[in-house]
């Protein structure tokens, strides 16, 4: 799957946070969007992931314009996964139930639990496991429907450096297996793992490194 963004602009009130962004992201790649706070990386990620409508410009998935897709919820469920800075696991559900929450079929859950190293914790609640284990469960939830691409916003922001590197390695591994990852982060260590680095500054793409 190829994601194309053409002429993206976005305003929050009168503040222009994206100013003509054009990017193309290939399926199966690990793409990092980096930049300082306020550079527009999170807004770009939100628009690319279909959660946010741009003020101007279009986003295409395999040539289809997102704003013209009939059922965006259904499209998102079939094609996109999300990992947030805070795990946002539902506290009254076990890790397994959290992963199963949006699953169209449950056959992948055991495999994911195993490959993410949390199969023994699957019946625990989020407040009974460590921060790194929570984020692994959140990654499993993002991958449960075998999406083409997973978007992650500061996924290591609440983790220590050891766990952060572990998350990047997981992303690297899953992207090698065919799932695309687009990760917004201010952590420069991500550059060691990403295939493509999009550097944002003041709402524009400053540089793209492959």
């Amino acid at each position: 799957m190829t994601i194309e963004a053409l002429g993206l602009e976005h305003f929050y009130g009168r503040d222009k946070v994206l100013n003509g962004v054009d990017v193309t992201i290939d399926a199966g790649s690990f793409t990092a969007i980096i930049g300082e706070s306020g550079s527009g990386k999170t807004t770009l990620l939100s628009i690319l992931s279909t959660l946010l409508q741009p003020s101007a410009g279009i986003v295409k998935y395999d040539g289809k314009i997102v704003s013209e897709l009939g059922n965006i919820d259904r499209f998102r469920r079939h094609n996109i996964g999300f990992v947030f800075q805070f795990h946002y696991l539902i506290s009254y559900l076990t890790l397994r139930e959290n992963i199963a929450l949006g699953a169209m079929e449950e056959s992948r859950i055991e495999t994911l639990l195993h490959s993410l190293g949390i199969s023994k914790l699957s019946h625990r609640y989020s407040d009974e496991v460590s921060g790194g284990e929570r984020q692994r469960a959140a990654i499993a939830r993002a991958l449960v429907n075998a999406p083409s691409v997973v978007f992650a916003d500061e996924p290591t922001g609440s983790l220590d450096s050891k766990n952060a590197l572990g998350v990047y390695e997981l992303f690297r591994g899953f992207s090698c297996a065919g799932t695309g990852f687009v990760v917004a982060s201010h952590d420069k260590k991500i550059a060691d793992y990403a295939d493509i680095i999009i550097e944002m500054e003041d709402g524009v793409v400053k540089d793209i490194t492959k």
Binding site: D73, R77, H78, F82, Y88, L101, G102
Partner: peptide
């Protein structure tokens, strides 16, 4: 709110 936001983000319908 977070719970319902997560549900929306993973594609659960309204």
């Amino acid at each position: 709110k977070a719970e319902f936001g997560i549900m929306r983000s993973i594609g659960l319908s309204s």
